[in-house]
Nucleic acid binder design. Structure first.
Length: 137
DNA sequence: GCCAACGTTGGC
DNA sequence: GCCAACGTTGGC
């Protein structure tokens, strides 16, 4: 689950750009999750700040690498490149996710400040279903 | 090494 | 706008 405030970087911008480095993550736990990502992995794009909802699916297209937006002499933070796969047919709101017992363990729910968090395949499929979004996963 | 103070994030 | 939950910083 990749969180972004739409005013900072929105789903539509990823669609426009075709590809983007998921930069600016400055939390050790989130960085560790980025470090586990591999090319081909799928992720949800989540809008925070305003309406809180999963808006699309994207794909990791690089290995984790140094985030160039950190200070030149630092080598602490990672990013991966992502590209859009498809928008959710219906956005899935945080409130809906919180209403699902099967999703209660998600770190998105349990650690609200975490901007990058993992999902199980089952959780991923569950949210796809809630968003009426068909994708082979 | 501990912890109080402070800053930030994000949901409400 | 508020506040809970964290993370970081700095004094000791």
């Amino acid at each position: 689950m990749l969180k972004s405030e739409p005013g900072d970087y929105a789903w539509d911008e990823l669609v426009r750009d075709g590809k983007a480095g998921w930069d600016g993550v400055r939390n050790a736990r989130a960085k560790n999750f980025i470090g586990t990502m591999r090319p081909g992995d799928l992720a949800f794009f989540y809008h925070s700040g305003g309406p809180k909802e999963v808006v699309g699916v994207c794909r990791v297209v690089s290995e984790p690498r140094r985030d160039p937006t950190q200070a030149k002499d630092e080598d602490r933070w990672l990013l991966v490149d992502v590209e859009p796969v498809k928008p959710m047919t219906r956005p899935v709101t945080l409130a809906e996710i919180k209403g699902e017992a099967e999703l209660a363990d998600m770190l998105l729910v349990r650690v609200s400040r975490l901007s990058v968090s993992p999902l199980t395949r089952e959780q991923f499929r569950h949210i796809l279903g809630m968003g009426a979004t068909k994708l082979r996963v």
